[in-house]
Amino acid sequence: MLKIIILLGFIVLNWATIIPLAKAEFCRQINGHGVCVVKIKRSAKNYWEYRTVVKIDQETRPLEIYNCRQRHRITQEGNIIPFKGDGIGKLICNVLNK
């Protein structure tokens, strides 16, 4: 029994050291711009929405809500901006939704 407890403690410690490594940015080139998803969290209530912080050419945007169902993003000021044809919204909704 003691061996199991020690083994579980070892696994938990190793898992805790791996988790920070998983926080790497997800980056792509879109229309000649470097686009990185710095932070992303899927809404539990509205699974088609992502709360996302995006960095474009080393300039970080504030947190925005990307609505993949209605194909728009909502800024912190409440402005609704439709997705562009081949922009960041497509990256977030199509690539990360798999």
Rank of each mutant, 00 (worst) to 15 (best):
M1A: 11
L2Q: 13
K3E: 12
K3W: 12
K3M: 10
I4N: 15
I5W: 02
I6G: 00
L7N: 07
L7P: 00
L8C: 11
L8T: 13
L8R: 09
G9S: 11
G9D: 01
F10M: 10
I11E: 02
I11W: 10
L13K: 08
W15D: 04
W15E: 07
W15T: 09
W15M: 11
A16I: 04
T17F: 13
I18M: 06
I18P: 03
I19D: 06
I19R: 14
P20G: 02
P20V: 02
P20H: 02
P20L: 02
L21N: 10
L21G: 10
L21T: 11
A22W: 12
K23A: 06
K23Q: 15
A24D: 11
F26L: 15
F26I: 15
F26R: 15
C27K: 10
C27V: 05
R28C: 03
R28G: 00
I30M: 07
N31L: 12
N31Y: 13
H33W: 04
H33E: 09
H33M: 03
H33S: 07
V35Q: 02
V35T: 13
C36G: 01
C36T: 04
V37K: 03
K39H: 11
I40S: 07
K41S: 08
S43H: 12
S43E: 10
K45E: 09
K45R: 11
Y47F: 07
V53R: 04
V54E: 01
V54Q: 01
K55C: 00
K55Q: 12
I56D: 04
I56K: 05
D57V: 01
Q58T: 04
Q58H: 13
Q58Y: 08
E59S: 02
E59Q: 03
T60P: 00
T60I: 15
R61L: 05
P62K: 14
P62A: 08
P62D: 12
L63I: 13
L63N: 08
I65D: 02
I65Y: 05
Y66N: 04
N67D: 15
C68L: 04
R69P: 00
Q70H: 12
Q70I: 07
H72I: 10
H72M: 10
R73V: 12
I74G: 00
I74K: 09
I74F: 03
T75A: 08
T75E: 11
E77K: 15
G78R: 14
G78S: 08
N79H: 14
N79K: 15
I80T: 15
I80S: 11
P82Y: 09
P82Q: 13
F83P: 00
F83R: 03
F83Q: 00
K84N: 09
K84R: 14
K84W: 02
G85R: 13
D86H: 12
D86I: 05
D86F: 06
G87W: 01
G87E: 13
G87A: 05
I88M: 07
G89Y: 03
I92M: 02
N94Y: 08
N94M: 08
N94F: 05
N94C: 04
V95N: 10
V95G: 01
L96G: 05
L96S: 02
N97H: 12
K98L: 12
